[in-house]
Design a binder for these strands. Structure first.
Lengths: 97, 97
DNA sequence: TAACCCGTAACGTTATTGGTTACAATATGG
DNA sequence: CCATATTGTAACCAATAACGTTACGGGTTA
């Protein structure tokens, strides 16, 4: 609400809103629990870094979720970004050949 | 039934078996149609490179598929690799806190 | 004031994606 | 048999991403 809404939300936004804030977790504490640096988690929750496969595993362990859910969110976001970035790519259809 | 988990196939394997071979497409021709270099496509179909979001878009256009299907396959593969690489990560559970 | 949290800049390392060019091996067709 | 096509791959390049440490300034709060 407060931030710019993207069509697919950045996974870091979901992480902050649905995981950190409900538990009253600080970025510093969550980073320590996840076993990553404070900078790394900060970049994620501020939308400047994506969820890597290994990070998805860490999140799944820490928050009792599925790693697939995090990577799927990331894929949706990446796909949205890719579509914005290259509105017209030169690709020939091959299924009618 | 299966104690031995089959590793998820590399998306490049699927690409070769389900897209290139059925249509009799060479790597050279498919690369040209996709608008990428021959090396790039060769690396993918030989399992030495992943499907990037932009490549998923190209494949979806060329083969009339969904880009999500390609990225989901890639996620499954990446997740499997990540699990193999780090069998035990130091991550603290936060959902019971 | 002191302690804490946060964002972020400034360095580094490592890995991946993508390109071009070039070469050798193996087809395949005339 | 020979010419061409196809393929994998190596050697270079650049850009980007993830992750780390260290350090700084701004904000909040006890």
């Amino acid at each position: 609400m407060t931030m710019t809404m993207h069509n697919p939300p950045h996974p870091g936004e979901v992480l902050r809103d649905l995981c950190l804030e409900p538990l009253g977790l600080t970025v510093t504490d969550a980073a320590a629990a996840l076993g990553v640096s404070r900078k790394t988690l900060s970049a994620i929750v501020n939308g400047r870094a994506g969820i890597s496969p290994e990070m998805a595993l860490r999140l799944s362990i820490a928050f009792n979720t599925s790693p697939e859910s995090w990577l799927n969110q990331q894929s949706q976001y990446d796909l949205w970004v890719a579509r914005q970035g290259s509105p017209k790519m030169k690709v020939q259809k091959l299924y009618a050949a």
